[in-house]
Simulated assay, not measured.
Amino acid sequence: MPADAAAPIRLARPSRDLGAAEEFWVSGLGLDVLYRHAADGTPGRSSLLMVGWRDAGWHLELVHEPTAPVEPRPTAEDLLVVYTGEPVPDSLLERLERHGGKRVAAHHPYWDTWGVTVQDPDGYLLVLSTRVWPNGPTG
C-alpha cells in the first residue's frame, strides 16, 4: 500500500456557513486558513475552506455548494479529537464560545473525564482532550 503513517489526511465536511465555520476554527481554535475557494454559481462547484496547522499532517476541508447545499448531519460519535496533553485553558473555551462554539456534554462520559467537548456552528463536535496520544504519561 503506498500510504503510510506519514500520509497527509484531509477530513472533509459540509458546512451551512463557511464564514461561521471560519470564525470557530480560525478565530476560536487558532487554526490557519490553508486554502479558500469561492464558488462561481456554476452547479456542482463548491466553495471550500481548508483549515489546519501549517505543519500538521492533516487539515479540515469545509465545503458549501450554494446551488445544492448538503446539510451537515453529525452524530454524537462524529468527533474531531485534539490531544493537548494538558488542561484546557478557560480562556480557550471562552474564545471558542465567543466565536460560535457551544460547550456540550459528551455522548460518552470518557470525553467528559478526559477533556472538553465543544460543538461547532455546523453541529460537529470538537474534543479537546487533556490526554496525550498515544496514551503516554498523562494518558
Rank of each mutant, 00 (worst) to 15 (best):
Q119V: 03
W58E: 04
T113M: 13
V116Q: 09
A6R: 12
L18Y: 03
T42P: 06
R16M: 05
L31R: 02
A76Q: 13
L128V: 12
L62T: 01
H37R: 14
R36M: 01
Y83L: 02
V82H: 08
P109S: 10
T42L: 13
A56R: 01
P89K: 05
G101K: 01
R73L: 11
A6F: 08
V81T: 12
D55L: 05
E23P: 00
A76L: 11
D55V: 07
S47T: 15
V116Y: 01
Q119W: 03
L80P: 00
G52V: 01
H99I: 02
R98K: 10
T84D: 11
P72T: 10
A12R: 12
P14T: 03
S46N: 12
D55Y: 06
A105F: 10
P109C: 06
H59C: 01
R16C: 00
V118K: 01
P89I: 07
D112H: 09
R95Q: 14
L126I: 03
S15M: 07
Q119N: 03
T67I: 06
T75G: 15
V127T: 12
W133V: 10
S15D: 05
P109V: 08
S91G: 06
P14F: 02
V118I: 14
V70G: 02
D90C: 04
P66W: 05
P134I: 09
P8E: 11
A39T: 13
R95S: 04
D40Y: 07
P43V: 05
Q119P: 02
D40M: 11
E94M: 07
H107W: 10
V82K: 02
G100F: 02
V70P: 05
H64A: 11
H64W: 11
P2I: 15
I9F: 08
I9Q: 14
V70I: 14
R103Q: 15
M50K: 07
P2E: 14
V104C: 08
V33M: 00
M1D: 13
H64L: 15
P89S: 11
P66V: 09
V63W: 04
V51H: 00
H108M: 06
Y35S: 02
P2Q: 15
V63K: 02
G44M: 11
D120P: 05
A68G: 07
D122R: 05
T130A: 09
V127M: 07
P14E: 02
V63M: 10
P134V: 10
M1A: 15
L92Y: 13
P8T: 09
S15V: 05
R131Q: 15
D4V: 04
N135T: 11
E61F: 01
S91H: 09
Y83F: 15
L11T: 12
L60D: 00
G19C: 08
T84W: 11
D55N: 09
H64K: 08
G136S: 14
P72I: 06
